[in-house]
Design a protein around this nucleic acid. Structure first.
Lengths: 217, 217
DNA sequence: TGCATTTTTCTTGTCGACAAGAAGAATGCA
DNA sequence: TGCATTCTTCTTGTCGACAAGAAAAATGCA
């Protein structure tokens, strides 16, 4: 059922269900007050998105986070930052900008309030709104998946600022909005690249250092 | 069950199940000699990949092909051609080149034999092998999905050559292999771009023209 | 006691049957 | 006859129970 899928997905992405933990169908069935059949359908969907891994005839577990080879993840993330922003500059319509502005306002508010969880959510929503304006469902879908996967990783990132994200990020978002509004694809691309690489560098520095402790979330 | 998923997937991509046609669970259950439960699981997986669309409490149909807005599809395809080839140049290992060479040989043979279906399959396998050498599962997954989706579209393309693909494509593959082997990322990127855009231009010419007839496949 | 083998016990995978919901057919009324 | 409403019929969604398979426990033998 839809509900089961949504709840489990959120619990996985928020690390309520820690990576590697086992998933018990019968238990979930009891918890949600329904039969195992709809539970299994939700699990199949989650497996399709790579959020859980199902060992045949054996247990199914929440997909582990692989902190060793994150290079591919970051490469993909930065490229999607770039391409979706560039496309937004080229293909956006007036109404799109309103949505983007709205999310940027919420993001700024979250930064102001030093609310880490809200920052993660609104930042993702901001960039997704930009991606939507680019009108390429293939890129948007991959980007969404990367941002979701990132919810499990980026949390470390925000913690490195002690729940305090620099104002600079808000400014960069504003610059991106300006480039998109001006339909300047090259500029939008460049800004998105810098914006993305900044996140990546920071997280990699964290991982290179002794940030192992936080993984026990 | 795995088998059902594979068979249905192939029938959809090969247009044996035409876009828009209805899918009957009970019928499939009888055909595969099993209960509806495993059938449904296969359908959920297919829906997750966008190959079928399921109207709640109503019928489920094979996803229609949208020939009007294919721009996003082509944009994504060309970008994935480029980025996977470039990464292959940067990250491949010796063993990867052997696999790539093997598929290129099969592709050349298919062109020689003027076997359109084999061309489609081996061309996709060739580019996927290149993508695998790039070692970015996010890009590879999207690329695979685009190539699969392309099996339903590209067929038109190959028909435009009357099942006779120019030798030029084989040569371009060779050039790509050379750039990858030389670890020349920029060159690989450029070659992949031209290669991809060529396919796109050709298909778009077909669609602009009166190629509507073939859609009744 | 140590190891191989059997048995038990879970978990997952599959089944047949029933419930729910929607589209279309049939009916009744003006 | 035309239209709204009820009823039928089909398809999908869910259920509880059973089958299959794997890990763990127990047993037997040296």
């Amino acid at each position: 059922m839809r509900i089961v899928y949504d709840v489990l997905r959120d619990e996985i992405l928020s690390l309520d269900l820690p990576p590697g933990s086992a998933i018990d169908e019968a238990g979930l069935a009891e918890r949600f007050g329904m039969s195992r059949t709809p539970i299994r359908e939700a699990l199949v969907r989650l497996a399709g998105e790579g959020l859980i891994e199902t060992l045949p005839n054996r247990s199914t577990i929440v997909s582990p986070l692989d902190f060793l080879n994150m290079r591919p993840y970051f490469d993909a993330l930065v490229l999607m930052y770039r391409v979706t922003t560039k496309l937004a500059a080229q293909r956006h319509r007036a109404a799109d900008l309103e949505v983007i502005h709205a999310w940027q306002a919420e993001f700024a508010a979250a930064v102001q309030a030093q609310d880490a969880l809200a920052m993660i959510a609104t930042n993702a929503a901001f960039h997704l709104a930009v991606a939507e304006a680019g009108r390429n469902p293939y890129f948007t879908a991959l980007f969404k998946r990367l941002l979701d996967e990132g919810r499990r990783i980026l949390r470390l990132y925000y913690q490195s600022y002690d729940d305090q994200l620099p104002q600079r990020f808000v400014d960069e978002h504003d610059a991106i909005i300006a480039a998109v509004a001006a339909r300047n694809g090259a500029e939008a691309d460049q800004l998105a690249r810098v914006h993305g690489e900044q996140v990546v560098d920071q997280v990699q520095m964290l991982l290179a250092g002794g940030m192992r402790l936080d993984l026990a979330l």
